[in-house]
Amino acid sequence: MHIRGDSDVAKEKYAAFIGESDARTNGNALSVLGRFETNKAHHVRIADNLIELCNGGSGIHAFKSHQVDIIHNTAYYNGASPELNWGQIFVQVTDDIRIVNNILVSRPNQPINSVGPDGGDQKSTRIVRAHNLYFGGLAPKLTGEGDLLADPQFVNPSTDPTVANFQLKPTSPARKSGRQERFGPFPDLKGKPRSVPPTRGAYEK
């Protein structure tokens, strides 16, 4: 299954878990919720999505899933519910996951690629991170080959969707600095072909 071209804005969930008083649960943008215990391959590809602007929980996360590729996504200022303390893109109790060529921008003092300030991959195995770009929030707890900590230089980053523009300036360190993958390249969010090497995030330019 291939999920691409999605854009989510300002989703929060006000429904308490049974037996808990906190009425703000997740409100994630994209979640892959599998059945890890069955050991069945799922092979879900999440690519070329713009996940931005105030979703209450994560931008993208996989939970109890197998074989998920999270590639060429831009996640900006999710984790709007401070009670959750969730990052932009992360995994929990998963196996065989590739997180490649994404741009993650977190809110001040919020985790960027984990759950909570001290979170890790939480009982996950065979996780590959490569050529992601991180900016803002707390320092990433988990990094991989070619990952960068830098300002992605969006044209006009904003929490106002009427003026926000998450395409990249010509000087962006994300441009033409991604990793070429055997399962790519895909066109970017606007349908433009990817360069070689590809640009990180949802937009090629």
Results as ranks from 00 to 15, higher is better:
residue 110 Q to A: 08
residue 106 S to G: 12
residue 164 A to P: 14
residue 126 R to T: 05
residue 21 S to Y: 07
residue 184 G to N: 05
residue 17 F to N: 07
residue 70 I to V: 15
residue 205 K to A: 13
residue 133 L to R: 10
residue 20 E to C: 07
residue 164 A to D: 08
residue 55 N to I: 08
residue 5 G to Y: 03
residue 39 N to Q: 10
residue 163 V to I: 15
residue 120 G to Q: 06
residue 114 S to N: 03
residue 16 A to H: 09
residue 166 F to S: 05
residue 181 E to C: 11
residue 128 V to R: 12
residue 181 E to P: 01
residue 161 P to G: 05
residue 119 G to N: 03
residue 105 V to A: 02
residue 194 R to N: 07
residue 109 N to V: 03
residue 198 P to L: 02
residue 196 V to N: 09
residue 36 F to R: 12
residue 42 H to I: 15
residue 53 L to Y: 05
residue 8 D to L: 14
residue 142 L to P: 02
residue 186 F to V: 14
residue 95 D to A: 08
residue 77 Y to T: 11
residue 12 E to Q: 07
residue 105 V to W: 06
residue 106 S to W: 00
residue 57 G to P: 01
residue 85 N to R: 08
residue 111 P to Y: 00
residue 181 E to R: 08
residue 132 N to G: 09
residue 101 N to Q: 05
residue 4 R to W: 08
residue 202 A to F: 01
residue 192 K to N: 11
residue 52 E to K: 10
residue 22 D to P: 06
residue 192 K to F: 14
residue 14 Y to W: 09
residue 76 Y to M: 11
residue 125 T to I: 15
residue 103 I to H: 06
residue 9 V to A: 01
residue 103 I to E: 01
residue 126 R to P: 00
residue 158 S to A: 13
residue 114 S to P: 05
residue 144 G to V: 15
residue 173 P to R: 08
residue 158 S to P: 12
residue 33 L to D: 01
residue 43 H to K: 12
residue 121 D to Y: 13
